[in-house]
Amino acid sequence: MPTAVRPVRIVVAKVGLDGHDRGVKVVARALRDAGYEVIYTGLRQTPEMVVDAALQEDAQVIGLSIHSGAHMTLFPAVVEELKRRKATDIIVFGGGIIPDDDITALKKRGVEKIFTPGTPLQEIVDWLRNRFPESTTK
């Protein structure tokens, strides 16, 4: 049987109450153009919803975006929910207005990577390519 190379699937979600989706949409497009399958779940996702979507979609990666300042509560909650659902193989990265001190703390709590405003899109793509060298399409 032919094995079509399967793109890495990434669930991209806006957690928190704010509706600032400019960044998440720009990133979603850039990931699509880099050959990834992006499942965008929309605004105001709770950690439970994000993890449930990632499981149903059999995603390898969850990308979170937030601009409301609630990242210290919500990002770790996603990691905890993954633990609860025994799906810690799914990796979590995030983006948004996040101060340096918080980035260090979030990494300690299991968020693999944080991208702050002004990060070149290529840097995000490169990081994923590095992380999933075998599965990318090209």
Binding site: P7, R29, T137, K138
Partner: peptide
């Protein structure tokens, strides 16, 4: 690119 944005959820 083989990529896609799936937004039906």
């Amino acid at each position: 690119t083989g990529g896609a944005i799936l937004g039906d959820r």
